[in-house]
Design a protein around this nucleic acid. Structure first.
Lengths: 200, 200
DNA sequence: GGTGTGCTATTACGGTGTACTAGTAAGGTG
DNA sequence: CACCTTACTAGTACACCGTAATAGCACACC
């Protein structure tokens, strides 16, 4: 879809892929102005022109990381490590939330239908159904990883529940104010959660 | 107990009170080397001699604050295992949320002041201060556990952030409909999160 | 031709944490 | 007394950070 855009060597795009790559290599990377600029082969001034502030850069990376790193369900892409795949899948769940105003709007939806007042039995069942599909989706991913030996056999239901709790926390935090961009800590949280599953 | 120590005008103590005072005046203060050194009337070199790294400084002042405020914190109950203690402490910050209608009311509060509309800068700063307090509290718990060897030394800030993300997820889930009692899966999630920290 | 306009590179400023060196005061030991 | 060791302090220096300001370049448009 960005074929015309990628045909142009636009440095904005290169900056984004550089930052996303760095984050992929090291989830706790700092994405400093100079390091990203150097990686992208541009100068800090150029970077600052496209992304006036660090927050803007990080949010942009966060918004675009899915298209750049996880185009579609990557659970079967055995080229990349299992943990990266699982993190990518979880991001898929987290993606529709968006950031900033969008995240608040998304939370507004669930708040008004489920929390503001005692939900009707119908909406309640609707949410529970959606939650179950999420649960099943995550469990499916875990089953795939377990089949290929990347995950010791165990209570995948409980594991999935834990992962969804983390995702819920990130969803809430996306709508809440934050001192810095959620990008880094969110990435770290996802990897920490996945490592807790895979390593334990 | 430090009466003899406080009788000596030792700069170490002055540094601690300076840092604590700054944190008292503004919970979001940065506690930079130069600022607390200037506040304490010492040089950066002197500060670095007593507190070789910034983390040591922050942990020291955090320990001082919380031991002075809450000396009977369950984190110090060395009779029970570390993971149980940490889970108990996390429960402590999860407790005021309540369950059911109460949890929805609690979430309603934060929703209306922070998410429903773009929050004012004042409320934003207020929330960020509160979040920082939580962060410091969890970091203090982790520092205590690290001191007694139950937790390998590492990036406690990131660990605390992860734990708070899980707590946020649980608070959200407390307000959402759930098929089973939240307490069971909640317990599992807390232990899973704590084990992810302690075991990794 | 001019003249904007978008993009880039360079440089600079103030901030951070940390490392290093020199100097000083105290306290023991010959 | 002299001497050395130790704890402490100050000052400076380094590398990095985010951001702002400036100047140069290419290209479209009138």
């Amino acid at each position: 879809m960005t074929e015309s855009a990628s045909s142009k060597p636009g440095s904005r795009h290169r900056i984004l892929v550089a930052a996303a790559t760095m984050l992929g290599e090291n989830p706790a990377a700092r994405l400093s102005v100079r390091s990203v600029a150097a990686r992208a082969g541009v100068s800090t001034g150029s970077l600052r022109h496209h992304f006036p502030t660090q927050r803007v850069l990080e949010d942009a990376v966060l918004a675009g990381i899915y298209d750049l790193v996880a185009p579609d369900d990557p659970i079967h892409d055995t080229d990349t490590p299992a943990r990266d795949r699982l993190v990518g899948c979880l991001r898929q769940i987290l993606a529709p939330t968006g950031t900033g105003r969008q995240a608040r709007a998304a939370l507004r939806q669930t708040y008004e239908t489920l929390i503001a007042t005692e939900p009707t039995e119908e909406t309640r069942q609707g949410y529970l159904a959606l939650e179950r599909t999420m649960q099943h989706r995550v469990e499916h991913w875990l089953a795939v990883l377990a089949d290929e030996g990347a995950l010791p056999h165990g209570d995948n239901a409980q594991r999935a529940k834990f992962l969804l709790t983390v995702v819920n926390g990130l969803t809430l935090e996306r709508a809440l104010p934050s001192a810095e961009s959620v990008l880094v800590s969110e990435n770290a949280a996802l990897f920490a959660a996945v490592d807790a599953i895979l390593g334990g």
